[in-house]
Design a protein around this nucleic acid. Structure first.
Length: 472
RNA sequence: GCGAAAGUAGCUCAGUCGGUAGAGCGUCAGCUUCCCAAGCUGAAUGUCGCGGGUUCGAAUCCCGUCUUUCGCUCCA
């Protein structure tokens, strides 16, 4: 297991990821994709888009980030997306008020004080205002688990949605939110897509887009950021069939990561024990990062919560009418939701490798190799003239220009050939094409494969097919 | 948000007692080189995170602030 700093350092050194606004000291938890990072990012999104939408039952969508404020009333975010927090003045610890009370109830149950536990539970269920949490905490003398003190502040709300204003007047009537999830853009367009794309359940809508959450704190490089991108697909199914489709998508999404070279031993399923208000089944795919396992994708069975809620709040019917079987229903939804930059970070960690290589003289050194899957590698092929003379640069450059029509290619003439190979290893380029003295005479080149460092001599005109043959 | 640590060249880091900055690697130019980073010559790159204070003088001492890392907390 390599350290996260090692990977961040390489990401910076080679132009994968930079800190946002770095020259001004950076902005907390915001990151920019450099020249190689953006290629990797686009390759991940492209692989996802093709896997999800190049099939008959899924349509694409790109919804606006700003949405009608009522959207968030319907989705539950206005209410549920703000956490009631309470601070302890003695220990300076901050707790979620509702969690604090729930823990207290658990403790009482362990002590077999069921009567008191039930009373508090009933009060907790009836909470309407933040002061209600406070009253429970004071009335039942709930102490700070850190200090044991009861020196609490009032309960305050921490809203995780970014606010901004539409139009020139910054008053409450013009408040809009940056979407905290991209899913709602799909739900509000359910009927539009259903009709214009002439689909019927089971079918899905896929979208890649940014979402924003004003997290209390950001963490672990790209893992938790306030601005992030999601790859989401909402699959609409007939109520009653959701369990089968849930299993279907679990299986497919797991295999998608494997198909891009993710190591299965680094992945695991995490079952949600506490379900969100909208879900009846939920699992995460987790990847083992250097700091531990973390979610990279969630597969959730969202029931008809979202569509039903939008129907209620908007007054527009969200039903599918099956004219053949003469039935109408609000579809159930299976959601697959992956974090793009979390995925990128997982693929970065997954690719990073150091190996010891020995040279002719018996010395040894460390070779840093990013073992990206060929579909994800930021640069697919690099072209080098072996030496900078005898017609080799000219031939190499012509091959470079030709490969550029189909691939992301680098041309490198600087330094010894071994150095150039290593530069490509460090950014994960799967193939290096070298033009040597024989090339100029018979039109063949050597293709060097990144992981094995083995070389094949092939005709220059066959390079593209050579790469494509290995792409699948 | 709390606690702790850190921030000096692109990266990794050194910098003594306070006297206006260095190394290795990398990068760039040229030479050399017929296959795996180590040859030769030369070059560029720093308001020492930012702001203030103390001092004749601050990378160094003090205060504030920002950022990062770790631990809590949080992650419907």
């Amino acid at each position: 297991m390599y350290k996260l700093e090692t990977i961040i350092s390489l990401a910076k050194r080679r132009g994968f990821v930079f800190q946002s606004s770095e020259i001004y000291g950076g902005l907390n938890g915001c990151w920019d994709m450099g020249p190689l990072g953006v290629e990797l990012l686009l390759n991940i999104k492209d692989a996802w888009w093709k896997a999800m939408t190049y099939r008959e039952d899924i349509e694409g969508l790109d919804a606006s980030i700003l949405m009608h404020p009522r959207t968030w009333d319907a989705s539950g975010h206005t209410k549920q997306f703000s956490d009631p927090m309470i601070d302890n003045k003695t220990s300076k610890s901050r707790q979620r008020a509702d969690n604090l009370i729930e823990e207290h109830i658990e403790k009482l149950k362990k002590k077999k004080k069921f009567d008191e536990a039930d009373i508090i539970q009933a009060k907790l269920d009836a909470v309407k205002e933040n002061t209600d949490y406070y009253d429970i905490i004071i009335a039942h003398e709930i102490k700070d688990p850190v200090s044991g003190s009861m020196d609490w502040t009032e309960v305050r709300n921490f809203n995780l949605m970014f606010k901004t204003f539409v139009g020139p007047l910054e008053d409450s009537s013009s408040i809009v939110y940056l979407r905290p999830e991209s899913a709602q853009g799909i739900f509000v367009n359910f009927k539009n897509v259903l009709e214009t794309a002439r689909q019927k359940p089971p079918f899905g809508i896929a979208q890649i887009g940014k979402a924003f959450r004003n997290e209390i704190n950001t963490k672990n490089f790209l893992f938790r950021t306030r601005e992030f991108e999601q790859m989401e697909m909402q699959y609409f199914v007939k109520p009653g069939s959701e369990k089968d489709w849930f299993e279907y998508w679990k299986d497919l999404r797991w295999k998608w990561y494997l198909s891009l070279g993710m190591k299965e031993e680094k992945m695991r399923w995490k079952l949600h024990e506490k379900l969100a208000h909208y879900a009846n089944m939920a699992v995460d795919i987790e990847y083992e990062f250097p700091f531990g396992f973390g979610e990279i994708e969630g597969i959730h069975s969202r029931t008809d919560f979202d569509l039903r809620s939008h129907q209620e709040f908007s007054g527009k019917k969200m039903e599918y009418v099956d004219t053949v079987n003469q039935e109408r229903y609000i579809p159930y939804v299976i959601e697959t939701s992956g974090g793009v930059s979390r995925g990128l970070m997982a693929f970065l960690c997954n690719a990073y490798d150091e190996e010891t290589v020995t040279d002719d003289k018996g010395g040894s050194e460390t070779r840093v190799v990013m073992r990206f899957n060929q579909k994800l590698a930021p640069v697919t092929v690099a072209v080098f003239p072996l030496v900078n003379k005898d017609g080799m640069p000219e031939m190499a450059h012509a091959i470079y220009k030709d490969l550029q029509k189909n691939f992301k290619v680098q041309y490198d003439i600087a330094g010894a050939i071994g150095r150039r190979y290593r530069r490509q290893d460090e950014i994960g380029t799967p193939y290096c094409v070298t033009i040597d003295g024989q090339s100029v005479e018979d039109g063949t080149v050597t293709v060097r494969e990144r992981d094995s460092m083995k070389q094949d001599r092939i005709s220059a005109v066959k390079i593209k097919n050579y790469i494509w043959d290995r792409m699948d």
